[in-house]
């Protein structure tokens, strides 16, 4: 077994015509569960495809266990993949699909390996039914079973929790966490941070093809929660007096008056939640509405993107 890391990306870019799917991404992964976070179109699937050898970088190098899987198919003995697509051959039973996968990966006891993998994903009862009649969640588990059957050192999972019910999600998260603890490298793509942080101690955040944050999941979570927030306030009258009052507060970074509303930018939303009612009381203003702005996931990713490019305040 080589000492090379499971995954090594060096200045990898991938573009399709004028569209940049991945821009100058470098990282290594070797052991443990790693979350690949990003909105739709961020470059997660492209990253996984490059890891899996389904695509070639436009520039830079991708090494999987020190080799290029496109040229060295033997490395697939050590890789298990859960693609975004449905399981193959829907007319086959789940058992046969998983057996076949194990067989194609040169597993001697492919029947035993398939039975164990199906049991691991909790599909033993439905194993002898054709995959074509399965629900989305069951298909996800077939894909997971075929990826696990040959005992890979590296697992590449494209949104593996999609379509699973809460119990199945917990089960899969537990399974992946265990595999990570065993020293296997598990890459899990997702666009939901709280899902990833339940299993991945480390995350890579991609935004528009750029690797904008990388590190311990806790640190990324902190970074996200400490980012400047914007709050939109609707006063019952002209809001200039309230705006002046708010600008004097230490936790308020900026105030904008627009169309009768006040947009407040703060680095401490908790403190603002205490101070805003008092400021309103002091100026005799009634607040008709308060709502956060840009608190959705896209905005979080945009913030990380700007921050990585040195534009965020």
């Amino acid at each position: 077994m080589s000492d090379a890391p499971a995954i090594a990306f060096e200045a990898v870019s991938r573009w399709f015509g004028d569209t940049v799917a991945l821009a100058d991404v470098s990282f290594t992964a070797d052991g443990g569960v790693i979350g690949l976070l990003g909105h739709n179109g961020a470059g997660k699937s492209t990253t996984l495809k490059l890891c899996a050898g389904f695509s070639t970088p436009s520039s830079g190098t991708v090494r999987i266990f020190g080799t290029n899987p496109r040229r060295t198919p033997d490395v697939y003995r050590r890789i298990g993949i859960v693609p975004d697509h449905s399981p193959p051959w829907p007319f086959l039973t789940a058992r046969r699909v998983v057996e076949l996968s194990a067989e194609l990966h040169h597993v001697e006891d492919h029947r035993g390996a398939a039975a164990a993998a199906l049991e691991t994903v909790g599909l033993e009862d439905a194993a002898d039914r054709p995959v074509g009649g399965f629900s989305h969640g069951m298909r996800q588990r077939v894909k997971l079973a075929q990826a696990l059957a040959h005992g890979p050192d590296l697992l590449l999972l494209d949104e593996p929790l999609n379509g699973l019910d809460p119990t199945q999600r917990s089960h899969v998260i537990e399974l992946l966490t265990r595999l990570g603890r065993e020293g296997r490298t598990v890459i899990v793509s997702s666009h939901v941070l709280h899902e990833v942080e339940r299993m991945a101690p480390r995350v890579l955040v991609l935004v528009n093809g750029h690797l904008v944050a990388e590190g311990a999941t806790d640190a990324i979570r902190r970074l996200i929660s400490e980012r400047p927030r914007r709050v939109l306030v609707e006063p019952d009258r002209d809001g200039r007096a309230l705006a002046r009052e708010l600008l004097a507060l230490a936790d308020v970074d900026a105030v904008r008056l627009q169309n009768g509303t006040i947009e407040i930018e703060t680095s401490d939303p908790a403190a603002l939640s205490h101070e805003l009612p008092q400021a309103a009381k002091r100026t005799g203003t009634l607040l008709r509405g308060i709502r956060p702005v840009g608190d959705d996931l896209e905005s979080v990713y945009a913030y990380l993107h700007d921050r990585a490019r040195g534009q965020a305040r």
């Binding site: 899996a52 033997d74 193959p88 051959w89 194609l104």
Partner: peptide, 18 residues
């Protein structure tokens, strides 16, 4: 057809000679 439905990925991601 396997390129269309993604089945090809399950074949290519094996150590079988191309």
């Amino acid at each position: 057809d396997e390129r269309e439905d993604g089945t090809i990925l399950y074949l290519v991601a094996t150590p079988q000679a191309r």
